[in-house]
């Protein structure tokens, strides 16, 4: 029997956009305020999980053709990679650099290497969280059988 989930599907279409936007906000907010790569990544993962709940695994796999295991590995590589910048300049591992730069639209903006590190963390969190949920829910069809 096909479940009747019109409300879930309709709400999801809007909610996913909002969650994605909010997670990007959280991610960028993290440098001076509560937020950051971990929370941003986790809410992105939540959006993807909501999609799989609403549609099915196959549809989501087709729409987002990313291997989440590889995404997680790439994220860790990126995060550790920014850490190795420190030793290149004879500073301790994981030392951060930051400064200010004038961008055309945004005006005076702060740049940090911590942002790169956070991107890595976000990728790792998205990859791991989604991968775990997908692994648990993969055998769904066998349950029904």
């Amino acid at each position: 029997m096909k479940p009747n989930d019109v409300i879930l599907r309709t709400v999801t279409k809007f909610a996913v956009v909002i969650i994605f936007t909010f997670s990007i906000f959280l991610f960028l907010n993290g440098h001076h305020n509560p937020g950051g790569g971990f929370i941003g990544g986790l809410s992105t993962a939540a959006a993807i999980v909501l999609l799989t709940l609403c549609y099915d695994l196959e549809t989501v796999r087709r729409t987002i053709p990313i291997d989440f295991k590889k995404l997680a590995a790439f994220g860790v590589l990126l995060a550790v990679g920014t850490g190795t910048l420190g030793p290149l300049f004879d500073l301790p591992f994981l030392t951060q650099a930051f400064g200010h730069i004038d961008l055309p639209v945004f005006g005076n903006t702060e740049w940090t290497t911590a942002l790169l590190f956070d991107t890595g963390v976000a990728f790792a969190v998205i990859g791991t969280a989604v991968n775990i949920i997908l692994t648990i829910s993969e055998d769904e069809s066998e349950w029904k059988r």
């Binding site: 791991t128 969280a129 775990i132 692994t135 648990i136 055998d139 066998e142």
Partner: peptide, 17 residues
Amino acid sequence: NFGVTAILLVLSYRIYQ
């Protein structure tokens, strides 16, 4: 804890199967 619980759940499902 999240990771370990996930491993435990998958494992217990395999054990049940």
